[in-house]
Amino acid sequence: MTPLLQVTGITRTYGARIGCRDVSFDLYPGEVMGIVGESGSGKSTLLNCLAGHQRPDSGQVVFDTRADGPRDTVAMSEPERRMLGRTDWAFVHQHARDGLRMGVSAGGNIGERLMAVGARHYGDIRGQATDWLGRVEIDTARIDDRPAAFSGGMQQRLQIARNLVTGPRLVFMDEPTGGLDVSVQARLLDLVRGLVRQMGLSALIVTHDLAVVRLLADRLMVMKDGNVVETGLTDQVLDDPQHGYTQLLVSSVLQV
C-alpha cells in the first residue's frame, strides 16, 4: 500500500534554536498518528511544516494526491498547496476562533470550503451545512447563529464540521481539546473518534495530553527538544515506554 503521507528528514530551525530535526515517518490511509511532547518539544513546529503553514529548512512531505499520485508538497506552488488545504487536507486549530470566521453564521462557516471549490447552489450548500451540524451534534436550528454565541465545545465541533465538509483525506489537529473543560473534552474526543472511523480519515494529532492519543491514535511519536525520541504503537509506547523521557511523561500522567 502507498503511504498517504511520506515525511523525510524534516528540519526547521530558528537561528541557533532547533524547532524540529530530521523527522521522518510514513502515515498510511486510515491511520491516526499522535505526536506528543511538552511545549517547546517541536511538535507544533513539525505540524506546521507538514501542513504547509511553515516552510521547513530541509526535507520532503510527499502526499499521495488524487490526481497525480505522490507529490512533494514542500516543492509545490502555493496555489496548489492552498487547493490541497481546502480539499484533501483539513486543519483543526487549538483555538476555534483561529479556525472559524466569527462574523459569519455557522452555516456560512461550514459552506465556505464548498463554495471555495465551486459549489454554487445555495440550497445544496445549506443542505450540507445542516447535515454537518447534525453530525457534530449541534442543533440545526442554530444554523444562522454566529459562533460567538456558541460554547467553547460547540465552537470546536463547528470548526471540525467546517473542515470535514469537503471530505478531506488527511486532518491535522493541533491540541484539539486544548482549551476545553474535561467533560467537554470527552464528548469531543468521542465525536472525533466516530468521524475518523466513519470517514476512514487519516490524522496527525499534536497534543501534550496522553489521554487524547490513548483514545484516538494508532501510533505514537514522542518528541523532545526537536527530536523524535520514541515511536511505536500507542499501547506499546504508553504501556512499555523505552526511552527515559517517555517513561517520565507516562509516569507524570499516571500521577495526575
Partner: peptide, 18 residues
C-alpha cells in the same frame, strides 16, 4: 492572486440566509 474567492460567495450566502 490565487483566485481564492469562496469568501465572496459566503457573503452572498449570508445575505440569503438572513
Amino acid at each position: 492572486a490565487l483566485q481564492d474567492y469562496g469568501l465572496m460567495h459566503v457573503k452572498l450566502y449570508e445575505d440569503i440566509a438572513q
